[in-house]
Design a binder for these strands. Structure first.
Lengths: 215, 215
DNA sequence: TAATAATTCAAACGATTGATTGAAAATTTT
DNA sequence: AAAATTTTCAATCAATCGTTTGAATTATTA
């Protein structure tokens, strides 16, 4: 019966890193939260930095796992699908991603760390850029290009590439601003019903954009 | 001839806080960059925390200053304007805000600190919430409600309120992700021409959304 | 069960942290 | 020019930082 100290360290550290940032978090606090000795961090992760990177790698792996069935299909559609299929595929992708992100399985903490690293790139940035940011941007761009028949319109293609950045950020906004939004909307929380409203906003945004540039 | 040490401290500190976060920044590094003694921080700002808050207050003041002519007019339109006027007003507001944010007058550093504080609210959060976040959300919501004739449709109004969150975040995305975007778009930088493309994307997004929910 | 390996731990390391002190220097006011 | 005020500075404070060490403990293997 082995103690999974490594896993506990990852969990506790994620929560503290998210609240206090990398520099604001002390190894002592992590160890204390995990009820382990400080040296266990060096033992398992070769120091504070290694632990931080392991957390981001974990996030990338989780998202990749959640998309592993949909992504190959989406790639196929973006190359050979009809515009209608492509639009449906974008919507499905956004729905899955957003549901996944909003779900309680997916920790707020991981996203907070992810966005911190994105806004302020450090040594761990390549992990999230190549593992998450780049592939998702690419599939979004290609699908919307297909959905709006923009293959042969370079200036539209460029506009779509640009558009994927606010789109991408929108996916996380509702998670990261959860407290502010609940207060602002006078909601009691992110209920199933409210989550549907959030997804509807995102889908409306994408669909109206596709529709607008298609003509 | 008085030295404006206070101003220099604010400038240097903003740059370092943006790159390294609050905890990651040492008062010694700030003082060194400002070519002043460490104790000058306590002398002018009553400590590191006070300096940090002064920086955010400065940001709020700058944005308020930039909007001081447009905001009262927008408020009037949102109450008594025609839908067409309201739509035009939103677009103008987004154009000004985005131009202002993208301009080199407006430091990337301030926004990085602002978004850090938003994602991870601390003692300084009320400064940015009441000074910036809340008023901008309100004017956006009211204008889009007016533009889409949603006054008597509560569920549409709620959707618009929700929509202002990704819209608000979109305003900053192109500044905070500047390096990634330039690389991704294969641009040489944020030229005047490219800035126009960015603004066009934002306007397209808003207009198509308004158009979509109006019918 | 004995030997081996993996894990945990208290203690200590030098380095750095934010803040304070009181005197020195510079500036402004009288 | 003298007095008063504001600003700057070197020096020092206790506290905390991340990491390392080597022994003690636990778990695994033989």
């Amino acid at each position: 019966m082995k103690k999974d100290s490594k896993k506990i360290l990852l969990e506790k550290a994620e929560s503290i890193f998210a609240k206090k940032g990398f520099s604001g978090t002390s190894t002592r606090e992590i160890a204390s939260a995990a009820k382990l000795n400080i040296s266990s961090i060096s033992y398992y992760f070769e120091g504070k930095k290694g632990l931080y990177q392991a957390i981001l790698q974990q996030l990338v792996d989780k998202v990749s796992e959640a998309l592993k069935d949909e992504l190959p299909y989406a790639k196929e559609i973006s190359e050979n699908g009809t515009p209608k299929d492509a639009e449906e595929c974008v919507c499905n992708l956004i729905t899955s991603l957003c549901s996944f992100i909003l779900s309680k399985d997916f920790s707020y903490n991981g996203i907070a760390i992810f966005l911190n690293e994105y806004t302020n790139p450090g040594e761990a940035f390549p992990i999230i850029y190549h593992g998450l940011i780049k592939p998702i941007h690419e599939i979004f761009t290609n699908l919307i290009v297909r959905a709006s028949c923009s293959e042969n319109h370079p200036e539209q293609k460029e506009m779509i590439m640009l558009y994927t950045f606010p789109l991408f950020s929108s996916l996380f906004v509702f998670k990261t601003r959860e407290k502010t939004i609940i207060q602002h909307m006078n909601w009691k929380g992110y209920t199933e019903n409210n989550n549907q409203k959030i997804i509807k906003v995102l889908l409306t945004q994408v669909k109206s954009f596709i529709n607008h540039i298609s003509q």
